[in-house]
């Protein structure tokens, strides 16, 4: 068994008075894809935001690659190789694709290295290469998601947090995004994936956690979760 690259222990997060995470704990092992599932408002995005330091945890402990990152500022966490692709893609409209990618490589000081990584990203997403000097707001939803992932790859992440990459995409594009994530994972990137589209996520993931009102109510390997009848009824709509 590979070692845990990310570990959460009894993590609690508040937004003001609202108790958004009520003590969650799980781990992500090196090389895995772990899916975080659940309905709207269950705390999936908050979990990712807490891990990447965008919101502070009130209690509990987050460990990344053996280092306690619970109180670390977001930019330091990113520099350690834990990169978060936030919900809604958040690409920089009005900037070209190339400028968007350069944000991902912001902490890479060498321009040559940035160029090499850009070329690697273009090789992975040829659609972006064709339009590298075009305004990113002209991309379709699926292409914007590709750009958001490519931007994160510029930082050579050890662990990639993906928040709802399939949101608002046509089924055929959802498949393409999922294939992309599998490719990344096979190339060695560990992925923590938040999805509403549980069926698609479980096809891809090794392991899954199901959240409900700020708690993890079910954990298990992806195959057993996909076979779980109660879960299938609640989240897969079948």
């Amino acid at each position: 068994m590979s070692e845990a690259v990310l570990q959460l222990q009894d993590v609690e997060t508040y937004y003001g008075q609202i108790h958004a995470l009520r003590g969650i704990g799980f781990e992500v092992r090196e090389g895995q894809v772990v899916a975080l599932l659940g309905a709207n408002g269950a705390g999936k995005s908050t979990s990712l935001r807490t891990i990447s330091g965008l919101v502070p945890a009130r209690r509990g402990k987050v460990t990344f690659a053996g280092q306690d990152i619970t109180r670390m500022p977001a930019h330091r966490i990113a520099q350690l190789g834990l990169v978060h692709v936030p919900e809604g893609r958040r690409i920089f409209k009005g900037m070209t694709i190339e400028e968007n990618l350069d944000l991902g490589g912001f902490c890479v000081l060498s321009a040559d290295e940035r160029r090499r990584r850009r070329e690697a990203a273009y090789a992975m997403f040829p659609i972006l290469a064709e339009r590298r000097h075009r305004d990113s707001s002209l991309l379709s939803g699926g292409e914007q998601q590709m750009l958001a992932i490519a931007r994160a790859l510029m930082a050579k992440p050890r662990l990639l947090l993906l928040d709802e990459p399939s949101m608002g995409l046509a089924p055929i594009l959802v498949q393409e995004i999922m294939r992309t994530i599998r490719r990344l994972n096979e190339a060695g990137t560990t992925v923590l994936l938040v999805e509403q589209n549980a069926r698609a996520a479980l096809r891809l993931a090794h392991y899954g956690c199901v959240m409900e009102t700020g708690r993890i109510v079910l954990k298990g390997d992806a195959a057993s979760l996909a076979a779980n009848e109660a879960l299938t009824k609640a989240y897969l709509g079948a």
């Binding site: 930019h75 990113a78 920089f92 944000l103 930082a155």
Partner: peptide, 13 residues
């Protein structure tokens, strides 16, 4: 443009 996205990519805002 987007403070959170910038922080998540390693920029010290």
């Amino acid at each position: 443009s987007d403070e959170d996205a910038a922080r998540a990519m390693g920029i010290n805002h």
